[in-house]
């Protein structure tokens, strides 16, 4: 998983390899990791901030960015982890090493981008909104939980895709409507007065509490509710335990499958 001590160095090397490979030979190199999500954020701001003018929310660009960054980390991790075992097929067929380092390194590369973007947007948000608060101390806990949550799902997605080749297409099809159902450019209370529908939006969508928690701290300047925190922590543990168990159970035949 987070690979044990014996394989920490391998994990580090795989992350370096992943970073190097993706934008090799491009003039801007690693900067693409930041440019893509920034362009995406600009496009969404244009759509929801300017064209549809959802101005009921104060400082809407900041509201949007904070949520969007979490979503980008979540969706990009899943989308790049799913085919990762197949992409590294040559390695898996010819060498023996802990296979989970592959999806784990892919997710880690996304996490590095995520942390850089969040630092940029986070500082701007805190300064512009004056939301510096002691609750900021909770942010590392929430981010670790988010990482564990995403890692667990990514391990599952990777190993499932190696067995069933339609997992990645299903994922990318599902992520689009999922995006619009996630509280990224709206607050659930703004679009529905119905208690049940609101609960479904807030709790039925597993990524929603993570968005809410990060946003409460950076944009709201306060601690997320205890219920949100509990959801975030339990979700992380559950995802990691189940994802890892699934990976270990299904990994034996990988050298034959990929």
């Amino acid at each position: 998983m987070i690979p044990g001590v014996a394989h920490r160095y391998l994990f580090e090397q795989m992350v370096r390899r992943e970073l190097r490979q993706k934008y090799k030979g491009s003039a801007l190199g690693v900067a693409w990791y930041l440019i893509n999500p920034l362009v995406l954020m600009g496009a969404y701001y244009l759509l929801f901030g300017v064209i549809f003018e959802l101005q009921r929310i104060p400082d809407f660009p900041l509201f949007l960015m904070v949520g969007l960054i979490v979503w980008i980390f979540f969706s990009q991790s899943l989308l790049s982890a799913a085919p990762s075992l197949l992409d590294h097929g040559a390695l898996i067929r010819k060498a023996r090493f802990p296979r989970e380092t592959i999806p784990a390194s892919v997710v880690t590369v996304q996490a590095i981008t995520f942390v850089v973007l969040l630092a940029l947007v986070g500082v701007v948000t805190i300064v512009l909104r004056g939301t510096l608060d002691v609750a900021l101390l909770l942010l590392p806990v929430v981010l670790l939980a988010l990482f564990a949550f995403v890692l667990g799902l990514s391990l599952a997605a990777a190993v499932l895709h190696a067995h069933f080749r339609d997992v990645a297409p299903i994922l990318s099809a599902a992520l689009l409507p999922w995006f619009f159902l996630s509280p990224i450019f709206f607050r659930p209370e703004d679009i529905t007065g119905q208690a049940l529908a609101r609960a479904a939006l807030e709790w039925g969508n597993p990524i929603a509490p993570y968005i809410e928690a990060v946003r409460a701290i950076l944009y709201g300047g306060g601690a997320p509710g205890l219920d949100v925190l509990a959801y975030v922590l339990v979700g992380a543990a559950l995802s990691l335990v189940v994802g890892r168990a699934l990976f270990l159970r299904l990994q034996a035949e990988l050298a034959v499958l990929v």
């Binding site: 014996a6 090397q13 390899r17 490979q21 390695l91 010819k94 090493f97």
Partner: peptide, 22 residues
């Protein structure tokens, strides 16, 4: 099999050593 094509020879020594658990 374990080479990163964009890594230098020297970097690949480290990657391959790591793949063997070093």
């Amino acid at each position: 099999a374990g080479f990163g094509r964009d890594f230098t020879g020297r970097e690949n020594v480290f990657l391959n050593g790591a793949l063997h658990g070093l």
